[in-house]
């Protein structure tokens, strides 16, 4: 439920699911940067093939990826039209009424669309194949260097995992409070702006108060179980780098170097 609430994680056992979260996080970042290098249609062709390969190895149904694009569909459309009409590089290839469409515009627009599709596909695949807690663990490991300069990486990671643990609980509580206030005549849907603000206040204040109480109880429970922020702790969940992670890393490096090289040409 925790994971489904996030709307992203889909349980499974594909190669992508089994890759180390550190690799996936860094890999995503590298690819996101690579996408912005202009390596021409060849470059985007390679990236597209890589993306298809990644999705294929993830057991995520194509429908899910399409669903992720839905919210920004109109944005893409808007951007496309905007760019087509305003960019004036290259030569004119089409005339319609007062609008002139340039070849440069077409290329740029296509690039933008491809970039957005790639970004969404890769990000969705990452979150769909990695449990939020594994993501946190991966981030915690990657942030280790920051620990050396005094950044409380472990405490931040602990905060994130507790927050994740409580999201479903807080959502349930929100529902409960809404029902209780609705039983006292609050309408969360209809009403003037003033009414709506009143409604939200009757929801937010109890939520905050209960959240603070929870925080205090939790702190007491953690301290009673010998939790000391900053102290050394062993870990139940560990990450282990496997052969497949190395192979994936190599593929990633090759592709991104290749694209970089192509973009210089």
């Amino acid at each position: 439920m925790n994971d489904i609430i996030f709307g992203q994680y889909l349980p499974g056992n594909s190669i992508m699911h089994r890759l180390d979260p550190r690799l996936k996080i860094v890999g995503l970042l590298v690819l996101l940067i690579t996408i912005f290098f202009d390596a021409g249609f060849l470059g985007y062709g390679i990236l597209a093939l890589l993306a298809i390969g990644i999705v294929a190895c993830s057991s995520i149904p194509l429908k899910r990826i399409m669903k992720a694009m839905k919210p920004i569909f109109f944005m893409i459309l808007f951007l496309a039209v905007f760019n087509l009409l305003l960019i004036q590089t290259g030569h004119v290839i089409f005339r319609f009424w007062i609008f002139k469409i340039y070849s440069g515009a077409v290329t740029q627009t296509v690039y933008i669309i491809i970039r957005l599709i790639l970004i969404i596909t890769l990000t969705t695949t990452l979150t769909a194949t990695t449990k939020p807690l594994d993501l946190t663990l991966g981030l915690e490991h990657l942030m280790k260097p920051l620990h050396k300069i005094g950044f409380p990486t472990h405490e931040v990671a602990m905060m994130i995992s507790i927050a994740l643990r409580f999201i479903p609980t807080l959502l349930e509580e929100t529902q409960r409070i809404m029902k209780a206030q609705a039983s006292r005549g609050v309408d969360f849907q209809e009403g003037s702006l003033k009414d709506k603000i009143g409604a939200i206040i009757s929801l937010i204040i109890p939520l905050f108060i209960s959240a603070f109480q929870r925080a205090e109880d939790l702190a007491n429970a953690m301290e009673s179980r010998n939790y000391i922020p900053g102290a050394l702790r062993t870990r139940y969940h560990q990450l282990s780098w496997k052969g497949r992670d190395t192979i994936a890393a190599l593929i990633l490096c090759t592709v991104s170097m290749g694209i970089f090289a192509l973009s210089l040409l």
Partner: peptide, 23 residues
């Protein structure tokens, strides 16, 4: 408000981690 782990096993493990029990 005293259930810290995301699952039952994580919650039991919490105290063990604090006591530096070997993995």
């Amino acid at each position: 408000n005293q259930f810290i782990g995301s699952t039952v096993r994580d919650d039991i493990a919490f105290g063990l981690e604090n006591l530096c029990v070997p993995h």
